[in-house]
Structure formats: structure tokens, C-alpha cells
């Protein structure tokens, strides 16, 4: 049967009401457009770049009322031209994940659990620790053979990480580390 019944129905007389009904039925896309929710309606776009490997694929965040409704490859990007790998494509899930750490947590010596603390308390603890360690482990000078050199450092503070940070964060991270006096400033360069 090469003529579908719908065509047959169009070819023959009558069926007006049915035809109208049928046409409505077969254009669900239009119905959806008119009544359904399209997730990018009213979205503001922000561009960013992926945070996995170093390809630097461009991404577009579509934000509606402060909510990330869609994140996908930036079609206007010179590296990925709209494409993303499986990891990049999954990144929308990280923003609203209930597994994110949402408040500073503290684990006391010997404790078997985390406790939530305030930012102030956390950073106060950290700053005091930096000062204590720095002051108690300061190496002003060091002897090599017969020569005593001024070295002005501590070897007791380690800074680790940066490959997941922005350049600006890395820059301040390194600057802060060296100003504290440590040379243990390292990141994932070898991973």
C-alpha cells in the first residue's frame, strides 16, 4: 500500500473534522513550541573554558534566573567548535551537585569526624598556623662549606596545587608562598 491512509483521506472527500484533528495530532513540535517549556527561554549566555585536560575547550553556560540550565560546547570557539568530550559534557552536573562541600569543615587532632566551622574561624586558624610554623622554623642563614648565606626561608610549609586554578590564582598562590618564605610551591605539573 503505497498511499498512506492519511493521504488517502486527504485525497477523498470529507473528513474535515478528522483531518483537522489529525493535523493537530501530527504537529506536536509546534504544540510544544507554543505551550511547552523550552529550557533556553530567557537564558543569558556566559562563556567559560573546560576544567579537565588542557585542550581548553570553550563552553557556554546558559543561565536562567541565576540557575545553570545548560552547559555545552561553544560553537564559536577556535579549539572545539561546539564539541565536548564526555567529561566536559557532564560538567553541568558539578555545579548543583549535592556532594559539593558547601561550608568550611574542621577535623580536630585524633577526631574521627568533620565539624562545620565558620569561614572566619577557619581562616583564622590557618593564618595563625602559618605564622606559628613560619616563626618556629625560620632559616635566616645557611652554611655551605665555609660560607654562610642569607637564605630567609622556611622549609616547613608546603603549597600544593594550581593546575585547576586560574592564572590569577596561581600567580597569587606562588607570590603568597614565596612571601611566606617557602619554596615548597608545587602543583600537578607531573600528573
Amino acid at each position: 500500500m503505497s498511499i498512506s491512509r492519511r493521504n488517502w483521506l486527504k485525497l477523498t472527500a470529507g473528513g474535515g473534522a478528522g483531518l483537522a484533528l489529525a493535523e493537530l495530532g501530527f504537529s506536536a513540535a509546534k504544540v510544544q513550541a507554543a505551550t511547552g517549556h523550552l529550557k533556553l527561554t530567557g537564558a543569558k549566555q556566559f562563556t567559560t573554558a573546560c576544567n579537565f585536560c588542557s585542550c581548553g575547550c570553550g563552553m557556554v553556560c546558559n543561565v536562567v534566573d541565576g540557575k545553570l540550565v545548560n552547559l555545552e560546547g561553544d560553537p564559536d570557539h577556535v579549539i572545539n567548535q561546539g564539541a565536548l568530550c564526555s567529561k566536559g559534557a557532564a560538567m553541568q552536573a558539578t555545579h548543583e551537585s549535592d556532594r559539593r562541600v558547601k561550608a568550611p569543615m574542621y577535623r580536630a587532632p585524633g577526631s574521627d569526624r568533620w565539624q562545620e566551622i565558620s569561614w572566619d574561624e577557619a581562616l583564622e586558624k590557618l593564618a595563625r598556623k602559618v605564622k606559628d610554623v613560619r616563626d618556629s622554623t625560620w632559616i635566616a642563614t645557611e652554611k655551605d662549606g665555609d660560607v654562610e648565606y642569607p637564605v630567609n626561608r622556611t622549609d616547613a610549609i608546603g603549597f600544593l596545587g594550581g593546575a585547576q586554578n586560574t592564572n590569577e590564582e596561581c600567580y597569587l598562590w606562588n607570590k603568597m608562598g614565596r612571601l611566606f618564605g617557602t619554596n615548597f610551591v608545587e602543583h600537578q605539573a607531573r600528573l
Binding site: 513550541a33 523550552l38 533556553l40 527561554t41 537564558a43 562563556t47
Partner: peptide
């Protein structure tokens, strides 16, 4: 098929 119906973006990076 709903992607073809999405509105064109109006704002990018403000």
C-alpha cells in the same frame, strides 16, 4: 527536535 525550537540567545557575557 526541541533544540530547533529554542530561542536564539540574546546576551553573551553581558
Amino acid at each position: 527536535h526541541d533544540r530547533a525550537l529554542q530561542p536564539a540567545p540574546a546576551l553573551r557575557n553581558g
